[in-house]
Structures are given as C-alpha cells and as structure tokens.
Design a protein around this nucleic acid. Structure first.
Length: 309
RNA sequence: GGUGCCAUAGCUCAGUUGGUAGAGCAAUGGACUGAAAAUCCAUGUGUCCCUGGUUCAAAUCCAGGUGGCACCA
C-alpha cells in the first residue's frame, strides 16, 4: 500500500468530531499505525477528561497500534518541542517497518509543528542569562526580545516575565548556534478534516460531557488529587480538569461547573476551527468530510484522495 | 379580590432633571513556533411588554391592560 505522493495521512478535527475512529479505520485498511496529536492524551491517568477512548483503536475486532498516548505522568508539563521530537522518532520507526503513519488529533500547534516543519531545537537553561534578566521589568524584556531579528519566536511570549526570559534564552541560543538541523524528514501528508456544522458540533459536545460525567469523570479527577497532584497542577491542564477541580475544591457548585465547562469546551472547539481555517488560509489543503457521513463512506473518500483519484 | 414592586440585548441587569439606549456574561471573527485544552485581540446584537394620553420630544411622566413576584385578605 505504498504511495509516492504521501508518506503520512493526517486526520484532524475539533473535539467530539469522532476523528479517532476515522483514523483507526484508515490505519487498519492501509496497514498503518496511529500517531496521536493531542496535547493532553499524552498523560497517563487522564482518560475520560481528555476524551481518550481505547475502544476506538479496536477496528472490526482487531487492535490498531497507536502512539504518543500515555507517555508521561500526570503532573509533568509536556510541550511542542518534545512532541515534535517524539513524533519524529515514532514516524521513522513506523516508516522503517513499512507501515503507514496516520497522525490524528486536534492540537493545532502540534499538528503544524509537524506539517509545517517548525524549527525547534533543544535549548538548555542559561543560568547566567536568567540572573541578568531577573530584575528587569516586562517591558524591558519585550524590548530586548524585539532586538532579535534572525529567528521567529513565539508571539505570545510577552505575557509574563517568566515566558519572556525563556524566549530570550531561546533567541540567545539560536544566535550562538546558527546551524540548525532538526533532522526533519520530508513530510508529505494528505490532510483530512472531520467537521460538523456549528449547532451539531455544540450539541455533540454537550451530550458527550453529560455522558462522561455519568461514566465517572469526576472520580477520575478525585483520584488524581488523591494521588498527590495539587489543584494548581490539575488546573494547569485546562477545561475538564480545571472546572472539575474547582468543583471538587468547593469553588464552584455542580451546576456552575457544568455550565462553565460546557461553554468553555464550545469555545475551545471554535478556537480549534479558527486554527484549521488559518492553516487553510496559509496554504494547507484540508479535505473535509462531514461528520454525519457513515464511517465506511468517510474512509472510502479518504482512500480516493489518498490514491489520487 | 386588595395593595405594593417589577417588565430594557440570548441571559443577569444599568439607564441621572424626558432628548429613540449600555455593562458583564454568552455569541461571532481573528491571532498563535518550548503552557496551545494555554494566552491574547476585535465586533455586533434591541417592536425598551401592549394600548392610549401629556409633550416639540417618552425606556423615562399619566391612565388602562397583560404577565411575574411579594405581602394582606
């Protein structure tokens, strides 16, 4: 099932669009393996809250291999740089074994780090520099950051001194290490998006939220708290973990948690769609499939695109 | 049944001595290279409950109606 044109299939979509079962089915048909592109499903023990569903990887009774799920402990702070590194390792491994990698997820930044070849290198902590910058005000740090012109840096780096200092650290490192070779292989991906029109998307999100609460999503968060994670650590993960922690620590009533979380997930899905539209505006061709289409038909269409018909 | 209070944006409510309205939230659009489920920017939304009256002019004052809440019977 080799293909000259593509060495990767990407299945993206907002939360609750059912992209995982599409990816798993495609992988199963094309003798492939799924690489998750989800910034939260990397954490062990965070299952219901991240929408992890292992059953999605059983296709017609047979398991499909998946990667980059459950790779770090809850409490750890994973990031794009690590994701890109981990992805490339898995990508090379799958390709070498003659299988087709299928990337699947909704974290726009992670998807783009792969599809658009972000140049990310390991930058060590520079204690001396940190000391020098320690007593500077945010606007002074911003000024210093603007002085670096050679490389792109994160445009949201000026939100806090901590982040600004890290950004300067990265820029400084780039200056002294001009030859960047991230060892990125050429990625040629067919990009498929799963989407529902807006009202259907919102309805699906609300229904799924109720369902997961019934399945014990709050217990999962309580378990994480009991295992020693602090409320701050859990709040860091956002959405489900943030709102449910606030409920369990008595800051929100159940109803406030439910309503607030429901709205927050809707807003998140909207931001995901904004990111995908942005990718399209910047030249990434996304082949959209309607979420209501039966799975078989979705996969049929994807196979047509993949084989270039 | 009587009396009092209330009725303004999708929701909760502001609205001065009369000059045809504005906050928060929601919603919508956008940005995004080591926290990205994060973070940030921008933008509207109206039979001011109805009918009549006073007035150059009514969300605002008056009368009646309708609906809601409270108290008294």
């Amino acid at each position: 099932m080799h293909n000259e044109k593509y060495n990767l299939i990407t299945i993206l979509g907002p939360t609750a669009s059912g992209k995982t079962s599409v990816a798993a089915k495609v992988a199963s048909v094309l003798d492939g393996e799924v690489i998750s592109a989800d910034s939260r499903q990397v954490y062990r023990g965070m299952d219901l809250g991240t929408g992890k569903d292992y059953a999605d990887y059983i296709v017609d009774g047979k398991p499909v291999s998946y990667h980059l799920i459950d790779i770090v402990d809850a409490g750890y702070e994973y990031n794009v740089y690590e994701y890109q590194k981990d992805f490339l390792k898995v990508f090379a491994d799958i390709s070498e074994r003659g299988k087709l990698p299928v990337m699947c997820g909704g974290s726009g930044l992670y998807l783009e780090a792969i599809l658009k070849n972000y140049k990310l290198i390991q930058v060590p902590i520079n204690e001396k520099l940190r000391e020098e910058l320690d007593d500077k005000l945010l606007w002074e740090l911003e000024l210093i950051l603007k002085g670096y012109k050679n490389y792109l840096h994160n445009q949201t780096d000026t939100e806090s001194s901590k982040r600004a200092i890290r950004a300067i650290e990265i820029e400084e490192y780039y200056l002294t290490h001009p030859e960047i070779d991230t060892g990125m292989p050429e990625i040629r991906s067919l990009v498929v998006g799963v989407k529902f029109e807006r009202d259907a998307r919102r309805k699906k999100i609300t229904t799924r939220l109720k369902q997961r609460l019934k399945e014990g999503m709050l217990d999962e968060v309580q378990r994480l708290l009991d295992s020693g994670l602090t409320p701050e650590q859990l709040t860091y993960y956002g959405l489900e973990y943030k709102y449910m922690t606030q409920h369990l620590t008595g800051q929100l009533t159940y109803q406030q948690m439910f309503d607030g979380l429901n709205v927050a997930i809707h807003q998140f899905a909207k931001r995901q769609m904004t990111w995908f539209r942005r990718m399209e505006n910047q030249g990434t061709k996304i082949h959209w499939v309607d979420g209501f289409m039966p799975l078989e038909e979705k996969v049929e269409k994807i196979l047509e695109w993949y084989s270039g018909k």
